[in-house]
Simulated scan of single mutants.
Amino acid sequence: MTSSETTSAKAKAPTSRVLFLVSSAEIGFWLAELTHPFWHLTERGASIDLASPKGGKIVPDRTSDPYAEGSWEADDLVSRGFLGQEVLKARLGGTLAIKDVNPDDYDAVHVVGGGGAAVDLYPNSDVARVLERFFALGKIVGTICHGSIALANVPKRVAGRRATGFSRVEDAQVEDLYGADFIPNFPQPVMEAAGIVFSCVEPWGVHVVIDKMLITGQNQQSASEYAIAFNHLLAGSSPVVHDRE
């Protein structure tokens, strides 16, 4: 095959389509948990659609915005780059409504975290419909941080499965800043009540769990590792070779 034929073949290669579910709640979503997977997945050719309960505009938690005063993520170069591109930033202003989404159009789903996910992505019958279809078809289901609470919408699919999300200890530390019960549901107890075998590491530590086609990340610090592992699931293999000698 000539170089021009190789280039043409790459251009015509089918790309994966990934659906991102993001909160519409006022408290917002966590920006890094959208931007890091967005970057890693699109870098490998994936096409991404954003969907939210209400559709239309979604807003990041202010403390996750690297340009905001008092941001927890001031050094997040990925989020800075995303917001610095008007064409990407505009994607946050025009999400699909989850009720209108056809799961059959996608190869995988990623549920973005942030406190808002615990407000309007659980309990949510539209989210349940989408996740149920992905599980039924054996497609990749990925969730991170507070977004992992969405798994509890389909308890029959997740009971006995291994997963992680924002831990109750981490939420307790956030409560010290935002006040007690700053969200109506906390991921860890809700997930455990749904029968999930929940695991986590120390607060703000990096932790990713893969259980067959279900992949979950503990928090925003896990976003890049989660996204890379997500890419490997999409590809069906990892390009990393370990020299064990």
Rank of each mutant, 00 (worst) to 15 (best):
S4D: 14
T7R: 11
K12C: 08
P14K: 13
T15W: 00
R17L: 09
V18R: 04
V18A: 05
L19P: 03
S24L: 03
I27Y: 05
T35D: 09
P37Y: 02
T42R: 11
E43N: 14
R44I: 09
G45R: 05
I48L: 13
S52Y: 10
I58K: 01
P60C: 14
R62S: 11
S64P: 09
A68R: 14
W72F: 14
A74N: 10
D76N: 15
V78C: 03
G81Q: 10
F82T: 06
G84I: 12
G84Q: 12
L88R: 13
R91E: 06
L92Y: 07
L96Y: 09
D105V: 00
D107G: 11
D107H: 13
H110E: 09
V112A: 07
G114N: 00
G114D: 00
G115W: 00
G115C: 01
Y122L: 04
P123E: 11
N124R: 04
D126L: 00
V127N: 05
A128C: 05
L137H: 12
G142S: 15
L151S: 03
N153V: 10
N153I: 08
N153M: 10
V154I: 15
R157A: 11
G160I: 04
R161N: 10
R162D: 13
D171H: 11
Q173T: 03
V174C: 03
E175K: 01
Q188N: 10
M191A: 07
E192R: 09
A194R: 02
V197L: 14
V197H: 13
F198R: 03
S199D: 14
E202L: 11
E202C: 06
E202N: 12
V206Y: 09
V208I: 14
T216A: 08
E225M: 10
Y226W: 15
A227F: 06
I228W: 10
F230Q: 04
N231H: 01
H232W: 13
L233Q: 12
G236F: 13
S237Y: 15
P239I: 12
V240P: 03
V241P: 00
D243I: 11
D243T: 13
R244I: 15
